[in-house]
Amino acid sequence: MKKIYSGFKQSVNNFSILVYLLSIILSSLIFNNPVIVLVIFGALLLMSFFAKRDDSKSYFKFALIIFLTTVLFNLIINQRGTNIIFQIPFIMVTRESLLNACILAFSFVNLLLAFYIYDALTNVKVIFDLMSRGLRSIAIVFILTIKFIPKIIEIFRNTSYLYKFRSTKKTGKSKLSRQMDLIEIVLNKAVANFMNVSDVLITKGYNNRGKVSKKLYSTKSDYVVLSVSVIAVIFNISMAILKIGKVDFGSSTVNMFVDKNIIIISLINLIMIVIPILIGVSQYLWWKLYVSKITASNMPTAKNFR
């Protein structure tokens, strides 16, 4: 997987990746037909393993918790439907309510996975460059957020651990009240931590930043990623306008159905989401079957000159 990932990263530029990311976020938002949602989920999951980050375990754990919570919450508040699966006091689970719950839960998880892929593939500087063209102050806020949210989490972890060594007696305060005290302490520390960032930005010359001109060099892979992503965006928006790929979510008549349109939508979105893997594989095969044979030894080339 690492070789395929590296093949993809080396053959496309940041702009293509950004367009691709916008396209997968859009596709995970638009449809709620259970078949399409499931296909998108499968494709996104595959892509998530492809673009694996260091903290993937905790992220997937978080996604699983969101999934289960959404299913349970929906089963409690929406008990419509006639095909009863089982019934316990106060809760009646029907095929329709379970389907509704799963549609919403998978849609949430799809969005989470899309942002996971976004986070794994994107580069802070690319987004920052885009924003700083017209929205300078938002760009600074963006940098601060990206950089300091993990920092604040780290401060919170360390402070709550070290606080145990300072506070040794039971204060009689409730857990909530102790937590609020801790948050106040953490915020004080976070402010102290933020103080030197403005100095850093000044020393890096951000206050002089003008318009940055950039040349993008596109390869064939870039054109493929861009074309597939743009086509998918246009196609998905058209389908959404035509109300194809949508079900009457929340109703008691929601059903799992497959027709020609659903298959086409699923297929197009599947190809669009896994396009980085396809490009990575083609790059790897190109290297393995062609380049490595001519670069491993210069004998064939030398022979030609003889």
Partner: peptide
């Protein structure tokens, strides 16, 4: 250069950091 070793990089890696500084000063690609 500050005494704080951490939190001195605005971007993710040194290459981006150098580009960021040079772009701020209007250098061509």
């Amino acid at each position: 250069i500050s005494q704080f070793v951490d939190n001195q990089m605005i971007t993710e890696c040194a290459r981006d950091e150098f580009n960021f500084i040079l772009e701020n000063m209007g250098y061509s690609a």
